[in-house]
Design a protein around this nucleic acid. Structure first.
Lengths: 106, 106
DNA sequence: ATATTAGTTCGATAAATCTAGAATTATCGT
DNA sequence: ACGATAATTCTAGATTTATCGAACTAATAT
């Protein structure tokens, strides 16, 4: 992971709609979710969502594959891990991140 | 850390100049670095750099305080940690990030 | 064949961002 | 007070991004 790749990924995740969509993909695991399912959560027009998803795909953070009539989206877990690892190493003083036991709100 | 805060931080770090500047601040530790020192590394016009730093400050990722003629910039380590922790929890399947022993290039 | 569903691509507009020179402010030394 | 240094603020142009309706493409069902 170099700084150009990292800033590209961060830039794409630096949009509330895309970050939320990516979060959904991660939470969904390897099975992923369809575009329609993402749309139900984000509640934005199809064309806008499609645009955001194509951003994630362009950055390599997500993949899409057709399954009949639906398009299934999956996160690129390797890249997500590499990005967090990069941030820990380069932008977090090598923070020894501990596994979270509970979700934090603030 | 909520999703709005996270996407705001990610967006600000999603620019090569700002990411590099922030990386310098983190690496510099609590003593921080002056704007001039950052400029030597980034090699961009003062006004452009100032603009980028003000972005980081606005997002809460950095702080500035005057020291005579120079302005000393420091990273907000707590926020950096909170951001990485959020990403691990929400966008990385709760990745159990290990402490890095060596820097990676790819 | 036609209709329906799922989603993309096109096109146009509004808004935000990036860049950088010029002018300005703040501090220090003489 | 004046000049030099450090950095910001102002201003403006160029580029990029976000949004979303309309038209289009792909796959299925009748």
């Amino acid at each position: 992971m170099d700084i150009e790749t990292a800033s590209k990924c961060l830039s794409e995740l630096g949009n509330p709609h895309r970050l939320e969509a990516f979060r959904l993909l991660i939470k969904a695991g390897p099975e992923g979710v369809t575009v329609g399912e993402i749309q139900k959560h984000l509640n934005i027009p199809k064309s806008t969502l499609s645009h955001h998803i194509s951003h994630l795909v362009w950055a390599g953070l997500a993949r899409q594959e057709r399954e009949g009539r639906v398009l299934r989206c999956t996160a690129n877990f390797e890249l997500a891990d590499a990005l967090v690892t990069y941030l820990c190493a380069e932008c977090c003083n090598g923070l020894d991140v501990v596994q979270l036991d509970e979700t934090q709100d603030a």
